[in-house]
């Protein structure tokens, strides 16, 4: 009996260690093998809009309340891309911040008017308790992001 308990204990320990070393999967299984650098997507967005791509980077920001988006660093300095997932379908925990990620999603182009950006800014300010000055928005903008399908976080 004692031997059995020791055996079970070791098995559980070994499986926990191996589990800890494997990447955590989110959403669908990754289907693409070839990675597209984020800088390439931003350099020539028209070529990639609507296409499914696989990107690699570091998670530099996480939606604090719902875990419904993350921001992934680019291969180029000062650049990042938002990876938006459907609420509740994929939930990224806060502790993924700073971890490496392989993420697959559809590259999207979002065109916002000035009014939409002001509304968005007000909403974010309310949700995160951050200051927002509507006069800082002077015109609309085009944003590129990934509609998240699946990811593997290390």
């Amino acid at each position: 009996m004692k031997n059995l308990i020791v055996f079970l204990f070791i098995t559980v320990l070994v499986s926990s260690v191996s589990f800890a070393q494997t990447a955590k999967k989110y959403g669908n299984k990754l289907t693409l093998k070839e990675k597209t650098p984020v800088s390439v997507l931003f350099k020539n967005p028209a070529k990639y809009v609507g296409k499914t791509v696989l990107v690699e980077g570091v998670i530099v920001n996480v939606c604090e309340k719902r875990g419904c988006w993350i921001e992934i660093s680019s291969d180029k300095e000062f650049e990042k891309i938002r990876f938006k997932v459907e609420d509740g379908v994929i939930v990224f925990p806060m502790d993924t911040k700073g971890k490496k990620i392989l993420a697959e999603g559809v590259f999207e182009e979002l065109v916002y008017t000035k009014e939409e950006l002001i509304e968005q800014g007000k909403h974010q300010a309310k949700e995160y308790g951050t200051p927002f000055d509507p006069s800082s928005i002077t015109k609309g903008k085009t944003e590129y992001r990934l509609k998240g399908l699946g990811a593997s976080v290390n």
Partner: peptide, 20 residues
């Protein structure tokens, strides 16, 4: 330290377990 990121030339983000 898990990783670092520079959002702009004047900023540096350092990611530590449980702390940014």
């Amino acid at each position: 330290v898990k990783n670092t990121f520079r959002a702009s030339p004047n900023e540096l983000e350092i990611f530590v377990d449980g702390n940014t």
